[in-house]
Amino acid sequence: MDFGNILALAFGEIISPTTAAYALAALGLAVHFGYSGLLNFGQAGFMAMGAYGYAISTLSFNAPLPVAVLVALLASVIFAVILGIPTLRLRADYLAIVTIAAAEIVRYIVTTNSLTNITGSANGLAGGFENGFFALNPIPEGTYNVGPLTMSEDSLFVRLVAWTIVALACVTVWLLMRSPWGRVLKGIREDENAVRSLGKNVYAYKMQALIIGGLMGTFAGMIFTIPRGAVQPANYATELTFFLYTVVLLGGMATVLGPVIGAMIFWVVLSLTQSLLFGAIEIGAITFLTNVQAGQLRYILVGVALMLLMIFRPQGVLGNKKELAFA
């Protein structure tokens, strides 16, 4: 086992665009669930809006990058409004049911065979929709060393852009949540009738929160899909939402940096356990597992890590213990 290599891989996961996408989508969930109490189980659907909205407008309509991004964001807002209108007047659990179903509906629609020309059905989309993005790359061609890693100018560019967006989103959420607007949201999380009795339009606030968190998910969907150069419908199944909830719970629900730290921990744990298990199998220390089984075992270990965290640090890594004392 080459521990230097294992650690380098783990570091690569910390800064990977996928981690950035998870962090951003989880931050959106923190806005929904952590700050506003909206039980959104359809964040995968918002990410799909980003991936498909961007890829379809580029591939089918030859839209330039800014237009494609705007289309994706607009699709996400429409999705949020459609979800919100019937459910936000009701209790939180209705939103959970409707969002989980809506995210699945999105996935079934894009895998419909009759839409193969547009959505690529189960095969998804590929074919250079990411070119417009990489054409903007100002970094000269070559290889660059980032810590122990070596990467191309495109890999560096996509990481820089991804983490810049995450940083901007974090600052925005922090600014919003310290404002009176954020206070109303937190009040709604605690008791929406009380907030209503004080003259605040609860419905409008919930809708705004749903849209903002959803837009973050949509950006995350684009960040997730651009470096891959392909949109795979299987990536946007419900388990993605559950991974994002894992990330939010790991980091701390009503925190700004919690989802970012949570995403890093999630991917580092996955990477380390994979490397260590594969290494152990390779040198014959573990004989009862195949590589495929070890790949599955990683997720079990993430689950165990989450359980331990919930038992010993239920507020998450960055959460405020005092808030839980009265839960």
Binding site: T172, L176, G182, R183, V184, K186, D191, A194, L198, F326
Partner: peptide, 30 residues
């Protein structure tokens, strides 16, 4: 009905009217 996970002061501030920062457009700018 009190907002348990907000401080007493934040509960009070929540009652106030005419706080421009309660609109999303102005919330970003202290």
């Amino acid at each position: 009905k009190v907002m348990g996970k907000l401080t007493v002061m934040e509960n009070m501030r929540l009652g106030a009217t005419d706080q421009p920062g309660e609109s999303l457009a102005r919330a970003l700018f202290k």
